[in-house]
Amino acid sequence: MIVMEPVLEPSVPGEILLRASNLRAEYEAASGGIVAVDDVSLSIRDGEVLGVAGESGCGKSTLGAVLSLTARPPLYVLGGELEIAGRKLSFDPDHAPPRLWRGSVVSLLPQGAMNSISPTIRIGDFAVDIIRAHEPGVSRKEAIDRAAERLEQLGLPARALSSYPHQLSGGMKQRVVTVLSTLLNPRLLIADEPTSALDVSTQKVMIELLIELLDRRLVGSVIFVTHDLPVLRMIAHRIAIMYAGRIAEIGETEEIINRARHPYTGALLASVLVPEPQIRRRRITGISGAPPSLADPPPGCRFHPRCNLATDVCRTTQPPQVGDWHQYAACWWAQDHQGEAVVSYL
């Protein structure tokens, strides 16, 4: 089994492309607000792929929407700051984020993107719309030519542009949509579950495409939102694990997978089913209990009701971030066991 290694190195190691701080976003609901992203800060280097993983309802897709400036009702960004490629933006309810950032600075590949193109238009029309949203003067032919050139550059058939969405297979559609949503060379691409609806073989091709986009510098960095940890291992440099609206742990991919420090990361990894001999030898128990309601999260560490290692302090006080911006675990246990992996304690 050959495992694909992340093939790229940040072109200027250490250069920070995106710095997000104290993001908070809320869904408006009849029963009151549901804070789905609560005080999340993170930074991404140029050329980096950051995986964001967690269970459904942990806020990972919401974080993607906030970072891509696509939050729309009933989701409201309550506060936080964003700095992308030297440009600063402060989330403020009275000022909408600059519209032109979308697509050229940040671009979102939404969940189920391949099924989001109107079935009655040709793929090429979609490309024209994308380009004209930013450069209204571009002629239709020129826009199509640019899209065709980009597709061919990446080894995809340019004739896809004259097809209707239903004429392409799922995997092809997803790849074409990905290429088109990066036509404007965004500095940051946020891909929300880009591989989840695909079969394993097309998943792999999709990931190769993302790596090529990075290699050719057609996108600066990628935030890859998924529930699928094994997929992240194929592409992500770092992984952020979210739980109940917060980042539980963030770190280098191999560190997270082999030496996780947050009990939630450990439990999540232990319940991943991969076709490897060890999973046939033992019983996998999952994680007892259910994630908390975000309308009324538990005090202290939000994972404590389900955590085997929880102590009194976990039940009352929000845990510290143990580590630096690049790699940390928000956990009292990790605070007391510096440098240790949690796996042997679970």
């Binding site: 408006e28 409201y76 309550l78 309810p93």
Partner: peptide, 13 residues
């Protein structure tokens, strides 16, 4: 209505 909600949410936050 939306702005009002955000304002109140911010104060709460």
């Amino acid at each position: 209505k939306r702005r009002k909600r955000i304002a109140s949410a911010r104060t709460a936050a």
